[in-house]
């Protein structure tokens, strides 16, 4: 299936979902890039910069698919939209925190992608299956890196364990929002374009629960279980009350907006 085969309502739903995929990658890439020059050791400074560069590269690919449908320029989507137009998840918008927070966030997101991307490789929409095939190979390196760090922090020192558990307490409640369906997702699932979000969540959450239990970490209640305040405050991807993204964009977009006519390198 290509862009020409899409019914108008499916096309609109697809633009929303692709925007969410791209925004997650861009925002996470920006948060990771905030470590450049500040990581705990030089080699990890290099590693997190690599991960950031990959995620932003993946954002460009997903924005490219939005462009095929709407004509919108990827640079415009990244640098000239306001926070209310973004569809990123609260998980990726959180400030970078300490190293345990950043590594756990990356691990949660990498595991989510490890389940999502193979499903997207089977998408009936050819441009999605092609991008997913490319991205999936590169993501393998991310998960190997973040999984090792989470394990190292879990069984390192009392201090590393305390910090990792604190990160779990903050980030775990945001997982349901990352995995929640957008209003148009049912249409996409019916066409085989995007996986059924309940089935995806049913693969991601038990996998993470198993891994985090193996690391002897305790999991706080999630929003879906009637729990934590953080998840309630996070709302949906299109309603945002915390101002975190606006602050991030004010920083990330400032150079592009200072001279909108400037040409990239």
């Amino acid at each position: 299936m290509t862009a020409a085969d899409l019914k108008p309502e499916v096309r609109a739903a697809l633009v929303e979902r692709l925007t969410a995929l791209a925004d997650d990658e861009l925002v996470l890439g920006h948060r990771d890039a905030e470590w450049t020059g500040h990581a705990p050791i030089l080699e990890e400074d290099i590693a997190i910069a690599n991960v950031a560069q990959d995620e932003i590269g993946h954002a460009v690919l997903w924005y490219g698919l939005v462009q095929e449908l709407t004509g919108a320029d990827p640079d415009h989507l990244a640098f000239f939209r306001d926070a209310r137009e973004f569809r990123s998840a609260a998980l990726v918008e959180q400030p970078r925190g300490d190293w345990a927070f950043t590594m756990l966030r990356q691990y949660l997101f990498d595991t989510y992608e490890a389940e999502l991307l193979p499903r997207l490789m089977r998408s009936t929409y050819t441009p999605i299956s092609e991008v997913a095939a490319k991205v999936n190979r590169e993501e393998l390196f991310h998960l190997r890196h973040s999984a090792l760090w989470v394990e190292r922090l879990a069984f390192g020192t009392d201090e590393s364990r305390r910090r990792l558990q604190a990160a779990v307490n903050d980030l775990w409640p945001l997982m349901p929002q990352l995995l929640a369906a957008l209003p148009g997702d049912a249409l996409l699932a019916a066409e085989g374009i995007y996986p059924d979000t309940a089935e995806l969540a049913g693969a991601v959450m038990p996998r993470l629960e198993g891994e985090l239990a193996r690391l002897e970490l305790s999991l706080p209640a999630t929003d879906a279980q009637g729990g934590a305040d953080a998840a309630v405050a996070a709302g949906t991807r299109s309603e945002r009350g915390d101002g975190l993204l606006a602050a991030l964009l004010a920083d990330m977009q400032s150079v592009a907006r200072a001279d909108p006519t400037a040409e990239s390198w």
Binding site: E43, A47, N50, E138, F141, R144, H145
Partner: peptide
């Protein structure tokens, strides 16, 4: 393996 990421995206240390 020292680091799965190196001086460029394609390399490890």
């Amino acid at each position: 393996l020292r680091n799965p990421f190196g001086s460029a995206l394609c390399r490890e240390i």
